[in-house]
Design a protein around this nucleic acid. Structure first.
Lengths: 263, 263
DNA sequence: AGTCTTTTGTGCACTTATGAACAGACATCG
DNA sequence: CGATGTCTGTTCATAAGTGCACAAAAGACT
């Protein structure tokens, strides 16, 4: 696996937000890979060898497997983030499984190498800390969401989240897959989607869900999507376009450095 | 708030697991405080000024407030952990609210000071990173748990978690409070507790729940409590006594250092 | 075209949980 | 002691979601 020096760092918003010198530090170590739906980046209990940065439309999910065989999604990660030892720094066994949901390409770097580069780059340390905080926020919100909100609201929330990451109205997921991720019954989810369709919010097609009116979907969704989005804005300087899609992260600022000098 | 140099570091398992030189670094900056039930350590959106280490039986909860006024618990933290910018390093606005659930004393340190001390102590950096990972694990598991498990199972899980932290069979909580934390209806929770009592697992008293048979409660609980406990064991070297209570964390090891040199 | 597989739609019995209301029990404090 | 406030027990109607079974539709493949 020879490092790919033409790696398109700009395809991942975290990497793109780094200053050029920091990007240059990482570039020689980044490896470009393709993944297909269902590919497992790492499994619970395994050592996380690499940090993976999804590019473009690629989306991965962090899953927690339960005894009854189900595997519930705890976080979604697209080109706005990274997967693998983000918090644990890659040196601890993973608690969750990471699975590719929407196929695409990624850049990845060996966890140990990333640690070394971090030593020399306050900007990188700062960025990863801020992203860690956003990842935690996402998960925290989901705890409350799953405890309190209806399947309809959670489903709408999930659709918005995927749209943000894909930048497309056409979401390539089956009812089956979505039901599993949400941890609910497939047949009930079908009915829920049907309801949303009848209200004109979405269109259900075999293997894909098409968002017709994002504002209407937002109205059906719980507040959780918005709450997490806001945290991404304040902490990572996330910028969204008119249709709600995440387009960039604010580059690291001088003031930020201070935060992570010690880290 | 003059530093308290007689601070009983041993009352918090994280602090106690530090080597003596690291403890000495922190000691002059630690402030001993008392908290009562309901005291708010910080609120969502606020800057987190301090990292707080609960001592003895003191327990705090991280809450996510929802639009309908409810506030659901996303994590419980007792003497095994710390609250406040654990992941964000205290330099970012909090996403959750931290509220004292079981009164008691804590040690706390200013976030900026902790950052400075971390610069000089690999052992401390390592410890906090490992704890961060465990905190995340706890939250990840709760996402799946809230999506999939019945209130009865989740309630039993919660009772076990509190017992671990208190080291006592008598849990001082009202139905009202517990229902709010779990994000469920109080009247239904009362029924659930009644069921558990009829099975001889617990005893319900005004303002407290008494665990009669821990093994039986474990059997009623979902796997989530065990899964998180196991992660604490592997990552923090948590040690439990015969009755299941968390008694200590493995001191930092030489090999661990490597992990966080960069951080 | 026809066959096969995957995905979606729907029916039905049943369980889990909500929401609201109210009575009774307990504790505490003057 | 009696008054008061907080907790707990229970009821009832209703909503939300499960679990299973099977039919119908949409693609995919010869």
């Amino acid at each position: 696996m020879p490092p790919d020096n033409d790696a398109p760092l700009s395809g991942n918003l975290l990497l793109a937000s780094l200053r050029l010198p920091d990007q240059a530090l990482l570039k020689p170590h980044l490896e470009l890979k393709e993944y297909r739906r269902g590919d497992v980046l790492f499994d619970a209990g395994e050592d996380v060898g690499h940090i993976t940065f999804p590019l473009g439309q690629c989306v991965a999910a962090l899953l927690i497997g339960l005894q009854d065989g189900r595997a519930v999604e705890t976080a979604t990660v697209g080109r706005e983030g990274a997967v693998g030892g983000v918090v644990s720094q890659g040196s601890l066994p993973a608690f969750s499984r990471a699975v590719v949901q929407i196929p695409g390409s990624v850049l990845r770097i060996e966890a140990t190498v990333l640690q070394q580069v971090k030593q020399t780059s306050p900007g990188l340390r700062n960025l990863i800390t801020r992203y860690s905080d956003c990842l935690l926020a996402q998960v925290l919100q989901s705890v409350a969401c799953n405890a309190s909100h209806t399947i309809e609201a959670r489903c709408a929330r999930w659709l918005l989240g995927l749209q943000d990451r894909l930048g497309s109205d056409v979401l390539p997921v089956t009812h089956e897959v979505l039901a599993e991720l949400l941890g609910v019954q497939r047949s009930y989810l079908t009915r829920t989607l049907r309801t949303l369709q009848q209200q004109g919010l979405i269109q259900v097609r075999r293997g894909r869900i098409i968002i017709l009116s994002r504002p209407a979907v937002e109205a059906s969704a719980c507040e959780c999507h918005g709450a997490v989005k806001r945290h991404f804005e304040t902490v990572l300087g996330a910028v969204y376009n008119a249709s709600g899609t995440l387009v960039s992260l604010r580059p690291a600022q001088t003031g930020d450095k201070q935060m992570c000098q010690a880290v």
